[in-house]
Simulated scan of single mutants.
Amino acid sequence: MYRLAAHTGLRQAPRSIANNTVRPALATPRFFQSVDIRTIMSSSSGVKVSDRIKHDHAELEQQYKNIIAAKDTDTQTRWQNQFIWELARHSIAEEIVVYPAFEKFVPNGKRMADKDRQEHQTVKNLLYEFQKMTPENAEFRPTLDKLWSNLSQHIKEEENDDLPALEQHIDADYSGQLATSFNTTKHFVPTQSHPSAPDKPPYETAAGLLTTPLDKLMDMFKKFPKEDMKA
C-alpha cells in the first residue's frame, strides 16, 4: 500500500531556502478513476510546499467568494460542495504531511503544530455543520461567514509565521518532496468533514482510508461547478 506519511520515504532535510514556483490548476472531483501514482508524484515537481498550500488557500478564498456572489441556489450549492471538498482534503493533508514536518524540523514546532491542529478542529466543527445545510437554511450564510472568519485567521498565521519557519529549516529539494507528498495525500483522504476523527498520523491516515470511499460515493450524487463556471 502506498504510504501517505510525510516522513516516509523522505530523506533528512538540510537547511536552505527553496525557489521555483508554479501555479497548479484548480483540482476538481474525479470519482473512481484509476490513479497514476507517477503522475501525482510529478505534479508538484519544483514547487515549494508553502506555495502548494498558499495555492489551496487562494482557491478556498475564491470559492468562498463564489458562494456569496452566486445569483441562485443551484450555483451556491455547487460552490458550497466544491468548497467543502477542497477544505476537507486540504486540512487532512496538512495534518498528515505538513504538521509532522513542523514538529521534526522547526524549533518549538510541536507547539506550532498543536496550535494549528486546534484551529483545524474549530474549522472542522463549523464545516461539519455547514456541509449539512442548504442555501435556503437561515443559518447558511452566518455559518459560512463564521467558518471563513476562523479559517482566514488560521491562513494568515500559517502563511505569515508557520510556513516561512518551515522553509527556513529545510532545503528546496525537501520542500518539493513535501509538496509532492501533500498533493498525493489529497487524493486518498476524506472529502467531507469528520470532526471526531483523529488528527495525527498514523491513526488519522488509517481512519481516512476507511472513510474516503464512502465520501466519494456520496460525492457522486452532488453537484459541482461546471467547467465554464471556473473560467
Rank of each mutant, 00 (worst) to 15 (best):
T143L: 10
P135W: 14
L151W: 08
E59Y: 01
E139G: 07
A70R: 08
T180Q: 12
E86C: 10
E103P: 00
K216S: 12
P14F: 11
A69I: 00
A197R: 13
L217A: 15
H90I: 05
D145A: 07
D219A: 08
R78W: 06
R117W: 13
T134Q: 09
E103R: 12
M41K: 13
K54W: 00
H57T: 00
R89E: 02
D116F: 06
Q177M: 14
T191M: 13
S196Y: 08
M220S: 15
Y2E: 13
A58K: 04
A18L: 02
Q118V: 08
Y2N: 11
A172T: 08
T191H: 10
P107H: 13
P213I: 11
D161I: 04
R11I: 11
W148V: 09
F140M: 05
L166N: 14
N150S: 10
Y99V: 03
P29E: 10
P142M: 04
S50N: 08
A69T: 01
W79K: 07
L163E: 14
R111W: 15
I84Y: 03
A207V: 06
D161Y: 13
W85A: 02
V47W: 03
Q62K: 10
I155C: 03
P100M: 05
Q168G: 14
G9N: 03
N160E: 15
M229D: 09
K48N: 12
L4G: 04
T184S: 07
F221N: 03
H7C: 05
N108F: 05
R117Q: 10
I96A: 01
K65F: 09
A113L: 03
V49M: 08
R23F: 11
P195M: 04
S16P: 13
V22S: 11
S45E: 12
E59S: 06
V106E: 05
P164M: 00
I53M: 11
D161W: 12
P201R: 04
T8Q: 07
S43I: 00
S91W: 03
E103F: 02
F102K: 09
R15V: 09
Y203R: 15
E95L: 07
I96V: 06
R111L: 05
N183K: 03
I84P: 01
D36R: 14
H120A: 07
V189G: 01
P225F: 11
I155V: 01
Y64C: 03
D145C: 02
E159C: 08
P198K: 10
P135V: 11
R111P: 00
E204K: 13
D51G: 01
M133H: 02
E129T: 07
A231L: 09
A101F: 01
T185D: 02
Q33Y: 05
N20Y: 14
R11F: 14
P164S: 04
